Simulated scan of single mutants.
Amino acid sequence: MAIVPEWSGVELRAFRVAARWSQADLAARLEVSERGIAKAEAAGSGHSLRPITQAMLDDLLRQAPSDVHARLVNLLTRDGETTYPVVADPEPDPVLGDHFVKHPRDGKLMVEVTAGIYLAGPEDEPRWEDTFWLDAHPVTGSDYARFIAATGHRAPEHWPEGRCPIDL
């Protein structure tokens, strides 16, 4: 799976082409204007995307099939070297083992939760969950505040004026 540490107009266009979407298709998925997609692509590496757009692109890329990942890496690779900052799946740390990795963006330790049936809800109903990665350590209030700033999610109701309390 490919990971794009920082999205610009270059990576945006490569991903759109790799996914075989039109500018209108991608604009609809990101809930932005088609003109905004065209403008970002035209600006190339000189255009840094908003954090919320980058987070949405991360989600779209994570959900994309492996052939889209392969095409993306191929589009961003010239003469056998990656021209732009695209990396493959995080490599397991030999000291940490196969089930731990460091996130390529923030360097936090993550643990693999393997796919399987989990008991969910008050009735403990069996539910299938795909494999996913989870932070190995609790998220701090300041970590969550950065997440809110990057994604535009609503702050918890108990945060005064939408800001993380100092004692968290």
Rank of each mutant, 00 (worst) to 15 (best):
Tyr144Pro: 02
Pro5Ser: 14
Asp130Ser: 13
Leu75Val: 07
Glu112Gln: 15
Ala43Phe: 06
Asp135Ala: 14
Gly162Trp: 04
Ala155Leu: 05
Leu168Ser: 14
Trp7Asn: 00
Val139Asn: 03
Leu72Ser: 02
Ala40Ser: 12
His47Ala: 13
Pro126Arg: 07
Arg71Val: 06
Arg13Gln: 07
Trp128Cys: 04
Ala136Lys: 00
Ser8Trp: 01
Glu157Ser: 15
Pro90Leu: 03
Ala150Asn: 11
Asp130Met: 12
Thr151Ala: 08
Pro122Lys: 10
His103Ala: 10
Ala38Asn: 09
Asp25Gly: 06
Val139Phe: 06
Ile37Ala: 01
Met1Ser: 07
Pro65Arg: 08
Ala43Thr: 07
Arg146Thr: 10
Gly152Met: 11
Met110Trp: 09
Ala145Asn: 02
Trp21Leu: 13
Ser8Leu: 00
Leu26Met: 12
Pro85Lys: 05
Phe15Trp: 01
Glu6Ala: 15
Ala18Asn: 03
Asp89Lys: 11
His137Arg: 11
Ala120Val: 14
Ala88Lys: 09
Ser66Trp: 12
Pro165Thr: 09
Leu119Thr: 13
Thr131Val: 11
Ser48Met: 04
His99Ala: 13
Glu123Phe: 08
Tyr144Phe: 08
Leu12Asn: 00
Ser33Ala: 15
Ala136Trp: 00
Ala40Glu: 00
Leu61Gly: 00
Asp58Ile: 02
Ala19Trp: 00
Val113Lys: 08
His137Gln: 12
Ala42Asp: 12
Glu91Arg: 13
Gly36Ser: 14
Ala150Ser: 11
Val86Gly: 00
Glu125Lys: 13
Pro165Leu: 06
Pro94Glu: 12
Ala136Ile: 02
Glu125Leu: 15
Asp67Gln: 08
Asp167Cys: 08
Ala24Arg: 12
Ile37Ser: 00
Lys102Ala: 06
Tyr84Pro: 01
Ala38Pro: 02
Asp130Trp: 09
Ala27Ile: 08
Gly121Arg: 05
Glu157Ile: 07
Gly141Met: 07
Pro165Val: 07
Ile148Gly: 04
Thr77Cys: 06
Arg154Leu: 13
Glu11Asp: 08
Pro92Ile: 02
Leu49Cys: 04
Thr140Asp: 12
Pro92Arg: 06
Arg29Glu: 10
Arg163Ser: 11
Met1His: 04
Ser22Trp: 04
Ala55Leu: 01
Ala43Ile: 05
Tyr144Ala: 05
Thr82Val: 13
Arg16Trp: 03
Trp21Ala: 07
Pro104Cys: 10
Leu76Lys: 01
Pro165Ile: 07
Pro85Cys: 10
Ala115Leu: 10
Gly46Asn: 10
Val113Phe: 02
Arg35Asp: 10
Trp133Lys: 05
Val32His: 01
Pro92Asp: 05
Ser48Ile: 05
Gly107Val: 03
Glu112Ser: 14
His103Asp: 15
Trp133Asn: 03
Met110Asn: 07
Asp89Arg: 10
Asn74Asp: 13
Asp124Met: 15
Thr77Ile: 08
Ala88Glu: 08
Arg62Glu: 15
Ala115Lys: 12
Gly44Tyr: 12
Ala14Met: 03
Pro94Cys: 10
Leu60Arg: 06
